[in-house]
Computed example of a mutant assay.
Amino acid sequence: MRSFAGTVAAGVLIRRVALATSVAFGTFLGVVPLGAHAADTRPDPLKVVASFSILADMVEQVGGSQVQVHSLVGRDADAHVFNPTPKDTRELAQADLVVINGLGFEGWLERLVKASGFKGPVVVASEGIEALDGEEDHDRDHHEHHGHHNDHDNRHLHDHGPIDPHAWQSLRNAKVYVANIRDALIEARPQAREELTARAASYIVEIEALDQQLTAALAVIPENKRKALISHDAFGYLAHDYGIEFLPVQGWSTGREASASDVASLIRQVRDGKVQAYFIENMSDARVLQRIADETGARSGGSLYSDALSAKGTEADTYLKMYQVNGRRLIEALQ
């Protein structure tokens, strides 16, 4: 005869075996035990559409697992001559949030939004930066930029106007982009505030560290040697931050080809200004640039990344890696 304690112990054992068997059998049949959904309470990622690859990366860096990002203009692609596809229209229609650069960069966006029927929030990542203005004048001997507050009204969706839209080419502006993206994601997903705030803060620390490194490295290069020939005028903010003079073959938009007089003027400027290096871009036609280099003796400094990241797994597949590559090549060529 079993003791009372032995009977209780045996009963507990039987119940444990029975429970384990029922759970296993229920799982086999597709029946989920109580409490099994506890780990699946996290909401689906926010569907975010970014206008081009650099913004898409910023959203991913801040959003992490909270976001699923689609970039309208892909890697190594030119946003200035972008033609949306039916897939882009579908992605936009299903989005929870759209992130754009603003400053007139996405001239095609208004038509695409209308075609998709998207009614959700559109975040202008450049909101609050000090935009640079100037003129698309290829005969100028140097570029003079003045601070201009960004008002982001509707005309910016139609043309570049007098404002340089490539504001992400300043690491200091990038911190503003990140803050705007963070705030928009928190508004869309307030329960993830702590995670999104921490990720944005960590990202900004990395941006600031890179800015400090480049400032120190470029400061030792004599000012009269900080000159370079480039494909199109996409580096005005970088030039402004680090005291570099860029001579562009094209203006702000790659959609306009350089004329014969533009090329002749640049050849004179390169010779007069003793520009020793030229750079091509990952999404530009380098033939005109090569012609100028052949006639002036300027040497290649390699590729710079302006409006698009490189393919995943390559040297410039994130915003920070892109900026590191650009900075390193400029320093090596201008020394």
Rank of each mutant, 00 (worst) to 15 (best):
I181D: 11
S284M: 05
F118G: 14
S231R: 03
R90V: 14
T215P: 13
S300H: 02
H146Q: 11
A115L: 09
F105R: 01
S51Q: 13
A95T: 10
H232A: 00
M283E: 12
G313S: 05
L247Y: 14
V59L: 07
L229G: 01
P84H: 13
G35P: 02
T296H: 01
T215G: 15
A5C: 00
H240W: 02
R140L: 00
P45L: 03
N154H: 12
A198R: 15
K87F: 03
S253R: 06
L92K: 08
V98P: 06
P84F: 14
E281T: 02
D96Y: 07
T314K: 01
L229Q: 03
G74N: 07
A217M: 13
D285C: 04
R271K: 14
G6P: 04
A293F: 05
R75V: 13
L132W: 07
D141H: 10
L309G: 11
A93K: 12
V99N: 06
R75D: 12
E91H: 09
S126R: 00
N224H: 04
L29I: 02
V325A: 14
D153H: 15
R199W: 15
H166T: 00
A298G: 02
G161N: 10
K175N: 05
A50T: 08
A131D: 14
V81E: 05
S231Y: 01
D183V: 09
S259Y: 04
A125F: 09
D153I: 10
A201R: 10
A192K: 03
Q94R: 14
L19H: 01
H70L: 13
D183N: 11
I181Q: 09
N83W: 06
A188D: 04
R329D: 03
I186E: 12
E110M: 02
S265F: 10
R199M: 14
G236Y: 00
V113G: 00
A179N: 15
K114H: 04
H142T: 15
A198I: 12
P45N: 06
G102W: 04
S71C: 06
G255F: 03
E208S: 15
G35S: 00
G74M: 08
T314N: 01
A228F: 04
Q61T: 11
